[in-house]
Structures are given as C-alpha cells and as structure tokens.
Design a protein around this nucleic acid. Structure first.
Lengths: 205, 205, 205, 205
DNA sequence: TATGAATGAGAGTTCATTCAT
DNA sequence: CATGAATGAACTCTCATTCAT
C-alpha cells in the first residue's frame, strides 16, 4: 500500500506481501503473526512468499526499513521547508511526525513496537538514535537561542515525541477531529512543552 | 518479586512463577514467551506451572491484574494524600505514575505493551478507561477552575500520560539521575503541558 | 533392540525409538529418512521423539555411537582372548568383525554408510581411524615378525577390512551358509590376503 | 566432465548439468542433493534443468547409466585385450576397475552408493548382477582350470571386488602413490586372494 | 528456448497442554 | 503435590515440480 515504488516494480506479489505483512505484524506482533497468515492475507501461497523474502525476519525488516525511510524522508523535507527558527523547525518536525502517524498507522504501530518485537540487530539502534537526534538538535538549538525556556530539554523533547507517538493509539480516521487540526494541536503542545517564549501560536492563528 | 502477598501465601511456587512470568513476558512478549521458558526460569516443572495456573493466558492475566492493582492503589493513595487543588492532584498522579514506572519496570512494560500482546478481552478496556479517567478528571477539574489553561485538555492529558509512560523506555536505574529528580521533572512537564497558571513550581526553586 | 541397557533403563520409548531410527536410517539413509517415519515406526508421536532426542542429527549420532561402541567392545574382547600370535590376532579381529556384521546388520550398514550421510563432525574421523589402527597394528606386527609376507601391508589390510564389510551387502540370514562358516571363510581369506606363512588353516582344520 | 559425447551433442546445457549432478549427488547423496543446488552449480536456471531432464530421479539415472556404461566398456576392452589365461583376465579386470575408480572418482562413489540412495528399481539389479558375472566368470574359469586354488571362489571374488571398490574411499590423487602402482598392487592382491598358483607377479619384479 | 513466478506437499521442530503415576 | 511422558496442532521453511510468458 505504501511501499516505495522501487520495490514494487516488476515484482508482482511483493507489494501485496509487503502490505499484508504490515497489516498482520501490526495486528498481532511479530511472534503472534504467522507466515501463513501473511501469505493468506496477501492471497498467495507460502512458498511464493519465500520466493521474495528469505524469511519472516526479513519480511519484518523490509516493512520496517520502508517505514523508517518514508518517515525520515518526510522529516527531512519538512525541515528543509522550514526556516532556521527553532520554533518553526520544531513545528515542522511535529507536523511531519503527526502527518506520518495518521497517514501510516500500521507502519507507525510497527515502528513504535519495534523494541522487543524481534531481534533487529544493529540498524534499529541507529534509527532510533537518528530519530532522537532529529528532535534533539532542534530543541537544543531553541534552548541555546533562548527561545525554548524549558529547564529540562531532554525530557521536554521526550515528552513531545511521546505525545506524538501516542496518537497512534487513539487516532480514529473516522473520528470527528480532522488530521490537520490534530497536527496543529500537537504543534501547540510541543511548543508549550519546550516552553517556547513566543507563545505557541494558537492553532492556525 | 512484587506480587501481592495474597497470592504468595501458602503457595510456594506461585510467587516464583509470577515473577518469572513477568520477566519472560516483558523480555519476549506474550507470543514470544514460551511456557517452558517461564517454568524453567522459575525453576519448576511445567506440570507444576499448570498446577497453579490454567494456562499461559491466565498467567499473563495474573501478572497484569496484579500490576494494575498495584498501580491504581498507588494512584489512589497519592490522590488521597493530595488536597483538592488540581495542580496538586495532577502532580500527585504524575508522582505516583513515575514512581511506579521506575520501581516496577517489568510490570510497566507489560502494562504498556498490553495492547495487541494477547486477547485480553473485557477487563483490559475497563482498566485503560480507568487510567484515562483518573487523569481526565483531574485535568478537567483544573480546566473548569481556570487553573489549567490548555485549550486542548484531552490532548494535554494524553501528553502527560504518554510522557510518563515513555520513561520506561529510557530509564536506567544505574543512570545519573535519581528517581526523585525524574519525578519532579515530570511534574514540572505535566503542569507545563496543561498550562497551569500558577507556574509549575520549578524543581526546588 | 541392541542399544546398551544403560540408555534403555527408566526411559520407555527411547529403546523403541533407537531401534526404529536404526531401521529407517539403514533403509533410506539420513536425508531420505523422515523424523515422521521414525516416530511412526516406533509407534510414538513426533513430539515424543523430540522429548528424548534433540533432533534428527542427534538421533543418528546416538545410533551410530551405540553401534560403534558395541563393535569396538567386541573387537577388544576378541583381541584380549587371542594370544600374541599375529595370525591369531588377525583371525580374532576378522571373527569379531564378521560376527558383528551378521548379527547387527542394520547398524553395520549405518556404520559403513557413515561417510557422507550427514555431517558427523569430529568423533567420526577418530572412530574410523581407531578401526583402521586396530587392524593396522595387527598386520604390522605380523609383517615385522615375518609371519605376514605381503609386500603391501596397508593395501592388504584394506582388502581384509573391505572384504568383511562387503558381507553386509550380500549376507542373508535365511541363506544356506551359516554365520560360523562365513566367519571361518573370511579368516581364511584374511590370512591369505596378508600372505600368512603358516598357510591359512583351512576352515576349522 | 566425463559424460558420453552423445549426450553432449547439440545440447549446450546438458553436459554442464550432468557434471553438476554428478558432483552434487556424490557430495550429498540423492536425498541430500537439491535440484536447486544442481542447477546452481551448473549455472543454469531450474526451469532449464527441467527442460533437459524430466526430474531429479531421471538426472540420477542419467548419471548412473553413463557411469555404468563407461565402466563396462573399460572392462570389455580390457578383457578383449587380455588373452584367455584366467590370471591375465582377472588382472585385466582389476586394472580396468582400479583405473576407472581413480579416474572417475565421483561416478565411482555414486555407483558404489547406489544401494539405498534412491529407488532405481529394475536396471540396477541387472547392472550389479552384470558386474558380479564379469568377475565371477573369470574366477570360475580360473578355478576350473586349476590355476586359482581358493576353496571359496565366491568369497574370493567378493574380496577382490570389495578391495578395488574401497580404493575410492581413501585414494587421493595428490597422494604419493601414483595410480599405476596402485593398479599393480591390487592386481597382486587379487591374484593372492584367489590363490593363483602361478604366484602373483610381484609388481615389476 | 529459457526464465521468474508460483505451488502443494512435506520437511524438521516447537508449542501449549494433558495425564498417569 | 509434583513429575516425566506424551500428544496434536501449529510453526517456519524447503522441496521437486509446473507453467505462463
């Protein structure tokens, strides 16, 4: 559904499998998901699955990698579009994160459940670290420039990230609040959390 | 390790099993944990395990129930000790939550990973709802009394809870920051998030 | 059927499994034999098999180890009973070998097919070397004492061993020649092969 | 590598496949060898393999047939070149057999492991019988003419054949003994085994 | 021709669970 | 009470094979 076009081209079945794996892993977790389930959901035989992926683990890694890349691409683009003002940059990151969460809910669950779901050896830590750094740099810049006044930059950053991530647990696309509004709310909350001096702009004001 | 004394009385094996289950479930997740692992870790035979618990599911439920009860007891006591001021009450809840997290790390992981880990049908929702309500009542009271100025009480509440919960992912008891300091930081962050008018008392300032 | 009594005591099922494994491995080879077949032949479930043996490989190793031990025990006893005369000693080894072959036909096939049947790592080479040494010492002693006149002691030894081993390919217990006669025939052939100076005693003369 | 030219003509892939099958079957046995392995080793796709051979079984049969034909051709030629003297004829057979073994080691392993490797129903027995008859006729002729004095012609013949066949298990082309010397040694051993009256001509003495 | 995709059957192994002792 | 033995179902994964292109 959302895998990068590169991986889909010329390999019919791989797209379906990727999407199915995403769903089933998100629903039942790595150990709870059976390869049978995934193949069935994709509408192919198990042997076909093994034609494309070396195993369950690789399937998970593929899904995770794709999700990670997409998320970081969104963050990078958002940061590029933002200016140099820390508040703007933090807002950009929050917007990217929340947008990703509401538009890629399965991948988000997966990404956030990564820890402990399987043994994703090295790259996992790097990725988590990269995600941390993205926010950390912005927050630190804001603190240095005196525009973020929080006495606890690290914990404020963790709060912002945790708040965004938690959205995946309650967000309902059929719910009353449209995504854009959620985005702006969390921008507000983020700027509040870091104690931004220019009062967090009320949503869309 | 931390099971309620009631369940330990008269049943020598049950305490060990409870603790072992807690560890293994936390380490590997419900589906990733095998009953063999748990029995082995507890140092008893699998048949002995089945003597005390009807099955894997029940073992999980026991651990979760105990964890839930302990947590809510701590919250209740904290609220009882707090006065009627919403800021105090919110601070009390945050203190209880953070205290629980740092002192019951395995149970916390379990509690927070509940979702999707297994099919805990009814009581789970009630419990989550109860946790939500605990914070929600306090936040709503604060907003009604004008002491919390956040324009988004629900999301502010979610932010506070998410921030506390996230502690379990990074907290290291061997780390430099003592638990009491963490508690006070998160009290500050919580009051900031709800935009408490009486500025959040800076820690020890 | 022929596993050492030690391994059978107190572990019902292990004996049946050992025998079944022996049969099936001998009939179909390691890769051709399925664990299902072995369990079925033993009349137990596959899970029961895995209760006693860690896997297919271990099952094979158990059978092979037992067979090896039995064979070497027979050789040792035969050598002990024989005097110091090289011809007697060679005859003793041949008797032991042929006796083993006709009385443990399945194990013999297994032992002789060892090579390449699976990846029996270290001990296999030692065992083969031990078997070689057993015969080699006797033949070399005979040559040194001038009682074996073969100009090619190594190849003569190989001939003797190969001739004995080949019995397993044609021996039919229901056939006309009784085992004792076969034994004496191969003693004769062995002494002939090493060119024993005291003409090989005609069978039982 | 050594397939008959007939099968190679016009079919570029078949030679490579034949050789690859030979190698892989020899290395891992019939059941242990996978069609994938063979195709890969041959550097062709599996579908290409199935274009030339109906299946795994047929692949094995082709390899075995070719090996058998080559061996029997060598035996026939050797016998034709030999005179009518049983000792000469036996020597010729041994020379042919040993020559084949050292120059076609993979095929030899395959041929000698035939038994139990797969279900080669009819032709297999005929072939084994033919091999037996080849030696048996020569030995019987020698016994009838009084030039072979062994009291056990059948077992002596089996000894000779077994001794030759065993060479494949220890022969190392990089070893110190050149093939021609091995050949002569085994001629000596064979004539010794059948108790040839004209003493086996010591090698080059 | 020659290939990648696809498959059903079966491989070895582990699972949660039960039961006779 | 507690254990070792045993099981059926399910697991991940590989197999030999076919077929549309």
């Amino acid at each position: 559904m959302t895998q990068s076009p590169r991986t889909t081209q010329r390999r019919p079945g791989v797209g379906v499998l990727h999407a199915a794996a995403c769903e089933v892993f998100a629903e039942r977790g790595f150990h709870g998901a059976s390869v049978r389930d995934i193949a069935q959901r994709a509408g192919v035989s198990m042997a076909a699955l093994y034609h494309y992926y070396a195993g369950k683990q690789e399937l998970l890694e593929a899904v995770l990698t794709e999700a990670t890349e997409t998320y970081f691409r969104m963050c990078d683009e958002a940061l590029k579009a933002a200016g140099s003002d820390p508040a703007d940059r933090l807002a950009a990151l929050v917007r990217a994160t929340v947008s990703y969460l509401v538009s890629h809910r399965l991948q988000s669950s997966l990404l956030l459940a990564r820890k402990g779901i399987a043994d994703l050896p090295e790259p996992d830590r790097e990725v988590a670290a990269a995600g941390t750094r993205l926010f950390a740099e912005v927050v630190e810049a804001g603190v240095e420039q005196g525009v973020f006044r929080t006495p606890f930059p690290d914990d404020a950053r963790r709060t912002v990230v945790a708040a965004c991530n938690a959205i995946v647990e309650w967000y309902n696309p059929a719910g009353p609040v449209p995504p854009e509004q959620i985005v702006e709310r969390y921008v507000h909350l983020a700027l509040t959390a870091v104690e931004c001096v220019r009062r967090a702009p009320g949503p869309r004001s």
